[in-house]
């Protein structure tokens, strides 16, 4: 090739500039986001899930829930997330600082789960849905196991097979704890001030 070195340097330059502006730059910028201290609740937000919910996040990852479910609410007037009751406000970058990897998801095959903990009435409702599946969602029956013989009925039993109750395994319990932990995020003052839209400006 006649201008081999020049071609190589130009190619390297193009790749470096793209990588720096689309990967390195945003990463360094988003890294500056810190938890926000809200004096009204005397606590910092967002909060990292702890205990069983943190283990449930691993189950969420492992089962590939993000293939069909997003955790990303679009703002009112941009998509129908607000109308569907998936969240009062859109998701902000600070909401995700404790998620690694970030579970944005890309396909809205199922409902968005960013605030699912606010919509679900009870643990039992989620267990029922996971055990038997629902319209468009496969059943995750393998997360449930026959209960050892017990004197008392388990309130979370999802089924009866051959006289034995089918109860959630530890993985199912962790996953449900994680999902119930996904609640409407807090309002961080810097974002609130920076995302205010004046009445006349809306279009």
């Amino acid at each position: 090739m006649k201008s081999g070195p020049l071609f190589f340097i130009a190619l390297l330059g193009v790749l470096t500039v793209s990588w720096a502006s689309f990967a390195l730059g945003p990463d360094m910028q988003l890294r500056t986001l810190a938890p926000y201290y809200d004096a009204t609740f005397d606590s910092t937000f967002p909060q990292s899930p702890s205990g069983l919910a943190a283990r449930g996040r691993a189950v969420y990852l492992e089962l590939g829930c993000a293939s069909c479910h997003t955790q990303q609410v679009r703002r009112s007037g941009f998509g129908s997330d607000h109308e569907r009751g998936w969240g009062e406000r859109q998701s902000w970058a600070r909401d995700y600082i404790f998620q690694d990897p970030v579970q944005l998801g890309s396909l809205r095959h199922g409902p968005d789960v960013a605030t699912v903990g606010d919509r679900i009435e009870s643990e039992a409702e989620l267990h029922e849905m996971l055990y038997s599946g629902s319209e468009g969602m496969p059943a995750y029956a393998y997360l449930y196991e026959p209960a050892p013989p017990a004197a008392q009925a388990n309130p979370l039993a999802v089924d009866q097979v051959a006289g034995r109750e089918i109860i959630p395994s530890r993985r199912a319990e962790a996953l449900v704890a994680y999902l119930l932990n996904l609640k409407a995020p807090a309002a961080y003052a810097p974002e609130v001030a920076n995302n205010a839209v004046e009445e006349g400006e809306a279009h």
Partner: peptide, 15 residues
């Protein structure tokens, strides 16, 4: 990184 609405403008100064 904290402006997420295309219609909004960044606020300068103390918030």
């Amino acid at each position: 990184p904290i402006v997420h609405d295309a219609r909004a403008h960044a606020v300068t100064g103390e918030i």
